[in-house]
Computed example of a mutant assay.
Amino acid sequence: MTIDYSINAPVTADQFIDLLESSTLGERRPLEDHICMAGMIANSNLVVSAWDGSSLIGIARSVTDFHYACYLSDLAVHRDYQQSGIGKRLQAITQTQLGPRCKLILIAAPEASTYYAHLKYTHNERCWVLEPGKSIGD
């Protein structure tokens, strides 16, 4: 099996949705909201993708300033390709695109927390989330 990796290659919303549906990440994303999903992929400024021929089989979707912080919003690998090093490679390629002082930051799915520890990520408990519909200070 030959997997090709690309940086900022075009990915359609439908390809993105199909990949998330066939990975464990789909259950935590608004797959039914095509406009939101299209916006997620279109407005990411660093997308590393893995392809088996013309099939999208992995993605590392990030928002970054390339110098200080890179938020790895989505890391997904198709179920049929998991446990083969694709997720690790997507993260490594992402890291090569960042400046030497840039941190790679992510929020792990509960079942994936042990995965990141063995890749040398440091656990940080200081994450806060403001849900849609909530106003600052109300």
Rank of each mutant, 00 (worst) to 15 (best):
Q95Y: 06
S55T: 14
S135K: 15
D33A: 09
H118D: 09
P10T: 00
W128C: 12
A50Y: 08
I7F: 02
V11D: 02
T2F: 01
G99V: 01
V11S: 01
R126G: 07
P110T: 09
Q82P: 04
S49A: 09
Q91N: 12
D4A: 13
G133F: 04
I107N: 14
H78W: 10
E21T: 14
K88T: 13
Q95K: 12
R89A: 10
A112I: 00
S6V: 00
K120I: 00
Q82W: 03
A117G: 11
S55P: 01
V63H: 03
Q83L: 03
G85I: 08
D18Q: 12
A38L: 01
C127M: 13
S54E: 02
I35A: 11
A92S: 12
E131N: 15
D33Y: 09
L56G: 04
Q82D: 03
A60W: 03
D52F: 07
F16V: 06
F66C: 12
R101N: 05
G53H: 08
M1E: 11
P110Q: 14
H123Y: 05
L119P: 06
I7Q: 09
R101T: 01
T114L: 08
R28T: 07
Q82I: 00
T96R: 05
L46F: 11
V129W: 08
Y121Q: 00
T94S: 02
I17N: 08
Q15Y: 07
L19Y: 04
V47E: 07
E131Q: 14
V11N: 02
G87A: 11
L106R: 07
D4P: 00
K103P: 02
S49E: 11
E125C: 12
I107G: 10
E111T: 07
L31K: 14
I105P: 05
F66D: 08
T12N: 02
I136F: 15
V77A: 15
A38T: 00
